[in-house]
Design a protein around this nucleic acid. Structure first.
Lengths: 321, 321
DNA sequence: TCCTAAGACTAAAACGTTTTAGTAAAGCGC
DNA sequence: GCGCTTTACTAAAACGTTTTAGTCTTAGGA
């Protein structure tokens, strides 16, 4: 598989590489019309495609940004990535998608790999466990923005759901029902991950003395089994899509009556709309987060103004079903 | 944001760039121990990271492969990508994930962009609408494998579900119930996309005279509304996750009794396990597809043997619920 | 003492582009 | 027919690495 270079094109069309390069960059007034046509033909006939590596060794910008999501299995992560992809596409940027899989080691590897690949900037949904690395990025003035999560002592702007408001809405929604006990079910807040911390904190504040059940994956399921009492009419706030799935699994097993147990979940997953009964949710402002994160990143890439706020929260939308 | 190069490291440690390069590539016997330590320090202090572009301009391999999925919203696409990512990770390959969004134009753009980025190979879930481009890849001997879909006149090996067998299992599963009418609900087979064509064809063969409802997105929903008759006990084969969602939406609206209407869906989406009632599915052999596609690609990358078969189908697994 | 080998390095070419500075020829005005 | 501009190009440096072919010094070995 011989690689076709600009030199092959130059030879084939009988001009110098410089002229071919001018042609490739659309500066047609540097050459006569017949030359231009000959080059055009040569490019097509040889199936020439410029070498991005060589091109961007000379240029400054790679017109590429990377996104590292904490876990691509979260519906929110995929939707956000899709939206950001749209923005990149519109603006002729390439997007490299990386999945850290909730593993700080993988995250570190990807951050380094993206830098080596000379991306112009990156969007990170941080695992929050690579403090030193984030800081060094910020210090080097490398263009980075965070999404979904915020880190207290790191000078990188973040774009995310207003978690306080979201939990407030969930709480308000349940108050309209006649509910005896309130539950919060979510992933554990031990890791200091913003949405977990903020959501849980707000729940505790709004419903002091009510039960919060937290844990990771299978552990969460066991804790639900251990702590949830199926008595009377309950309200259950599901902190994210994983929590919702865990609770539904439990509800199925116990055959809970979901007309008496009122669910409301953060993250508007497609399943909520078709479940029986349908499930009320709070949809994340994916569009706003994607847009503002992208714009802020571009500001940084182009060396423009810093955003005036480090934490940028956007309100979710209650979808009552 | 000044970029730190190997030259800076060389100056800082008082040796030539060649020596630093040797150090970076682990060829330590090219230098004395103290030199080695000085370079090490300089690298850390400067936070030096090699420029991938420059490095791979010289080298042949980029240790990078790309995957282009037809639509990242399909559960199957994400699971497969995750598995392939694991294989890449294990073997120290980087994976660039691209989402064609069922748009042949985007697919073409991504294929070109991956070539320009000098990936060592790519895995494509083809939209099937870029015939000429696939062929030119095959002719140039560029390392490519297909997944999920197969293209008749293109010399690229494909790794996919055994669709005939899958539909056969779905059919068999429903035959154990007492069913009066059989339905097939799926995306349209107009585009000549392997799974759609094969699944539909097999259904027609097994259940001649029974109803097949096909269409895209909203159109599919309307066709269900128009053609599905809620009379007696029905069996419904859902051709993929989109079809399942569309049908569940319809079932909800009509308040269909899902104990009388028996569903079986291809693609084991998480929702199937928690839905009420739980939904039987046919799980794709994601693991096998990922593994074999990856291995075949690596064979090609390393210039090894061609796979002996162009079409490699693996059997799905019936999950009765 | 001379020869060779080993050890510790370095210079420079090469990878495939872009870009800057230049050149040669043609055309034009006067 | 001289100077100037325009047109149509080209040569060569540069980007940040890797790699090959050296070079220089020191140390043995005969």
């Amino acid at each position: 598989m011989k690689r076709i270079t600009i030199k092959d094109v130059a030879e084939r069309s009988g001009v110098s590489v410089s002229t071919v390069s001018q042609y490739l960059n659309g500066r047609y007034n540097y050459m006569g019309e017949d030359t231009r046509n000959r080059i055009k033909e040569a490019v097509v006939e040889l199936g020439y495609r410029p070498n991005f590596m060589a091109r961007n060794l000379k240029n400054r910008s790679t017109k590429t940004v990377g996104i590292i999501v904490s876990n691509i299995l979260h519906h929110f992560a995929v939707s956000l990535t899709r939206k950001i992809e749209d923005y990149c596409d519109e603006n002729n940027y390439n997007l490299i998608i990386c999945n850290a899989d909730d593993d700080p080691g993988k995250e570190e590897k990807y951050i380094n790999s993206l830098i080596e690949k000379q991306v112009d900037g990156m969007i990170i949904m941080p695992t929050t466990a690579n403090d030193a690395l984030y800081k060094s990025l910020a210090n080097q003035n490398f263009p980075v923005v965070f999404v979904d999560r915020f880190m207290e002592h790191v000078d990188i702007p973040s774009f995310k759901l207003d978690n306080h408001h979201a939990v407030g809405m969930a709480f308000g929604h349940l108050q309209n029902k006649k509910i005896e006990n309130l539950y919060y079910v979510g992933t554990s807040d031990e890791m200091d991950i913003t949405p977990r911390v903020e959501r849980l904190a707000r729940f505790m504040k709004l419903a002091p003395g009510q039960k919060a059940i937290t844990g990771e994956n299978d552990a969460l399921y066991s804790r639900i089994e251990a702590e949830f009492k199926n008595e009377g009419s309950n309200g259950i706030i599901l902190a994210n899509d994983f929590a919702l799935m865990a609770f539904l699994e439990f509800a199925n097993k116990m055959d809970l009556d979901l007309e008496k147990n009122h669910l409301i979940a953060i993250d508007d997953v497609p399943l909520a709309d078709v479940y029986r009964p349908r499930i009320s949710t709070i949809a994340q402002p994916v569009e706003e987060i994607a847009k503002n994160a992208y714009l802020a990143l571009m500001e940084k890439v182009e060396g423009g103004a810093e955003p005036d706020k480090l934490v940028n929260s956007y309100k979710g939308k209650l979808i009552e079903r």
